[in-house]
Write a protein that binds this DNA or RNA. Structure first.
Length: 363
DNA sequence: GATTTGGAGGCAGTCATCGC
DNA sequence: GCGATGACTGCCTCCAAATC
């Protein structure tokens, strides 16, 4: 974790610090220090395929128009549209700011973070390639221009802006590698954060390597949310994903992802199925398990809420098992045994997972 | 002749490994 | 923890063959 403060334009090391540092040229600076925050995505960029799925530079202009007169136009720079992987930087910044906001700490549009922290948070290799990729991603984010009159934070405005306003590598190691990065978010993104128009992502989102998988998760998260099931036509889904593939190719890709999910169960929070008639079905894994519950759970047990990090710990305690399945097993076990709700449900759940794994081994 | 299908290859990014 | 390297992956495009 980086420690520092600003004196004039100089950055100096400091023992302790406030998350909000003194202003530079009238701007306030937020220093990222929440290492274990949860990924957050703003709802507006989940709604529209702002980010390119392509691994090649995508320089095609995109425009989305709506019946009520709203529109979003995305203009890439010569270096191409920002990709779904570039979005990781925005997600990281948003996660840090939302975590600080939740703790009632002051936040600012300009955020400083350690490049290595971001690479680790987003499940990337912290090699020279990773840092080069980060630099290019910042260039694409800065170069991608959005014109819109869509509401964010309850305000309707016509604006033209970059996905980020500014990016700056504020210090480099002696061999020229970037160390700290300063990113100034666009007003549009910042207003979404201030208005809490963000959704929490599963940490496994960063394990999804295929750009299309990530976009499908986005669509599922936004459209399915807490609902049990969400169905969408393949053609509409293709539009929502912003895929430039042919229908045939898109069908093949979605089918491959759905079949892979059946085998590896790797798609976070939702399962995906390609149905007859070119319909795609997103099923909420947690809701599906609740429906299958064989016993009626007492209110005090069904009302127990686990912390998001507890699910990560559960995966380690019982490798190979579906964490939501384990959660349901645990609740049913307590209900069957007539047990009271535990004082510390997170610890109790992890303990249950360990014993479950000892008894049953891998699935 | 037009459309559909299947497959190959390009490009860019990721991952794994090794040595420093 | 980083750089270099090669293998691998996924999206996309192109083209030839098959079908209507």
């Amino acid at each position: 974790m980086t420690k520092g403060s600003i004196q004039g334009d100089e950055i100096v090391e400091a023992g302790g610090r406030s998350p909000l540092l003194p202003a530079r040229h009238g701007e306030e600076l937020f220093v990222a220090d929440v290492f274990d925050g949860y990924p957050k995505g703003d709802m507006a960029s989940m709604e529209f395929p702002i980010f390119s799925l392509s691994t090649k530079p995508d320089v095609e202009l995109r425009r989305f128009e709506f019946a009520d007169g709203h529109f979003v136009e995305i203009t890439p720079s010569a270096k191409g549209l920002a990709t779904v992987h570039d979005r990781d930087i925005l997600i990281y910044c948003m996660s840090q700011l939302v975590a600080a906001k939740n703790e009632k700490k002051p936040i600012a549009r300009t955020i400083r973070f350690v490049a290595h922290d971001l690479l680790r948070f987003t499940n990337r290799v912290a090699s020279g390639e990773g840092y080069r990729g980060l630099r290019q991603a910042l260039e694409r984010l800065r170069g991608t221009t959005i014109s819109t009159n869509v509401k964010t934070g309850g305000e309707e405005t016509f604006e033209v802006f970059g996905l980020i306003d500014k990016a700056k590598i504020v210090s480099e190691t002696r061999d020229g590698r970037m160390r700290e990065v300063e990113v100034t978010l666009s007003d549009w993104t910042f207003r979404s954060i201030e208005a809490f128009q963000v959704l929490t992502y599963n940490k496994d989102y960063f394990r999804l390597r295929k750009p299309l998988e990530r976009r499908l998760y986005d669509v599922g998260r936004k459209m399915c949310g807490e609902k049990k099931i969400f169905r969408i036509g393949l053609e509409k889904l293709k539009d929502r994903c912003g895929s430039k593939s042919t229908m045939r190719e898109f069908r093949r890709l979605v089918k491959a992802i759905a079949e892979d999910d059946i085998v590896h169960n790797h798609f976070p929070d939702y399962s995906l199925r390609l149905l007859d008639g070119d319909m795609v079905e997103f099923s909420n894994r947690r809701a599906a398990i609740a429906v299958e519950a064989p016993v009626e759970l007492p209110v005090e047990i069904s009302a127990l809420r686990l912390k998001p990090e507890t699910y990560d710990a559960a995966r380690e305690a019982a490798p190979g098992w579906d964490k939501y399945h384990l959660e349901q097993e645990w609740r049913v076990w307590m209900a069957d045994g007539g047990l009271d709700a535990p004082r510390d449900p997170d610890k109790a759940f992890i303990g249950f997972c360990r014993k479950f794994f000892e008894r049953n081994g891998r699935p």
